[in-house]
Design a binder for these strands. Structure first.
Lengths: 238, 238
DNA sequence: ATGTTACATGTTGTCGACAATCATGTTGCA
DNA sequence: TGCAACATGATTGTCGACAACATGTAACAT
């Protein structure tokens, strides 16, 4: 009967999921300004859905720390202080160093496998650097680090790290990051990979700490990016 | 005028918050069985609220990994496998060791302050041990570790650790934990505090790893707790 | 007896509406 | 002119209703 036409897996995604994804995108790309209040009705109308899924998406994004909720007040896009940036990078150090140690503990094969993934992430980073899109570079950078954490094999730490990644990108989107040159950035990540291959936990730990501390100070030293251009496209309705 | 009756700070908590708190309590105490399906209407009726706040609470608890959601299916209470337990304790090691290192980095004053908090947590643990309530002991144990993480000063890691704590308690509530004797447990935590006072990062790191690895194997070796008694009090409506 | 179809029931996903709360601007009065 | 009280409008919190979906049961055909 149905021998020939083998159909696709066919995947549905809930409305809440899509709202969530879209809002997350708008936040991490900086399209929605920090501190920006999000009107439920307005967001719902512009996305063409009702308020229920929007509210549920808000709930999720609040626990993801991208939105801030206060009773009887509109949720607002989270604003990041210097202290936040410090915390984010500190937490990233905690998770990355742990992942690296676990990978080394797991033996040479695990290190090799990780190295391959990191190399491929590096290639992507180089591509994006040549491309020139600031945010795409930031995402490729983060993808590199995320690959390391994933190789650590702890899904809970991966989840925690994803939240930190989203926060990091959000910060970068709103601060004119005093980025090192592309070559410097690449070299810095190469050192990272090399350190992993020494199989020395303390070595890789100090390299990670140094790498992230540097990135943190680069970010903290940045100035707020003016962007009257892409003014919040999802709220003005007043 | 209003000199005499000075009123309270007066705090309101949203319905969603209360639903969330109540469900969390039922889950971590094991009143709700792992795998148990939660009917929205039934839960709403029994809590005396409508489905909206219940659904929003579900959203939060899903991101807290206490509930599991599937499209067009009832959310279910998360079930934990041995792999989960392994992950949870591994993640706890990552966060606790990092916190300890940061506390030591912060200097002698920070270590002293931390020690005081840990001592007070130990006193509470002793009290609960004498009391004899298994779950209360587990909570006191977790409170000790949580105090350490809080002293680390990174609110994001504290938040991540709270999720892990809740998962840990849930596991303990459902497994007949082969607990060491009260004295052993106390001594183990005392060693923990002593290690911190050496101000040696590697020392405290290995003690934490050993402590949590031991706790993990105790938990993993446990047998599922039969509890026909306190059968799920919030769902039967059929 | 077995497998399939159609139906019946219950549950989730989504929506619009109402009540409670908050923000704002205006009026009244000292 | 300044402050307080009020009126007004908008926004959130909560609710009940309906549609879409999934599951279990009965009828039917092979």
């Amino acid at each position: 009967m149905d021998a020939e036409l083998r159909l696709s897996p066919l995947e549905f995604t809930s409305t809440t999921d899509r709202v969530c994804t879209e809002l997350r995108r708008l936040i991490v790309t900086g399209t929605l300004a920090p501190g920006q209040a999000l009107n439920e009705k307005s967001v719902a109308q512009q996305l063409g859905v009702s308020r229920s899924p929007v509210r549920e998406a808000f709930q999720r994004l609040v626990t993801e720390r991208l939105l801030l909720a206060e009773r009887n007040k509109s949720v607002t896009v989270k604003e990041f202080t210097d202290a936040d940036i410090q915390e984010i990078y500190d937490a990233r150090i905690a998770i990355e160093t742990h992942a690296a140690r676990r990978i080394i503990d797991a033996g040479a094969a695990a290190v090799t496998r990780t190295t391959e993934r990191l190399e491929s992430a590096l290639t992507e980073l180089r591509t994006q650097l040549d491309e020139g899109d600031r945010l795409a570079v930031a995402r490729a950078d983060l993808a590199f680090h995320q690959a390391l954490v994933e190789c650590g094999g702890n899904s809970r730490l991966v989840a925690a790290y994803e939240l930190l990644s989203a926060e990091t990108v959000t910060c970068m989107a709103w601060l004119e990051n005093v980025k090192p040159s592309g070559d410097e950035l690449m070299q810095d990540h190469r050192d990272f990979v090399d350190a992993l291959q020494t199989h020395d936990p303390d070595q890789i730990t100090s390299v990670i700490s140094a790498h992230l501390s540097l990135a943190e100070s680069n970010l903290a030293a940045s100035t707020p990016a003016e962007r009257a251009s892409r003014q919040s496209a999802v709220v003005p309705q007043r």
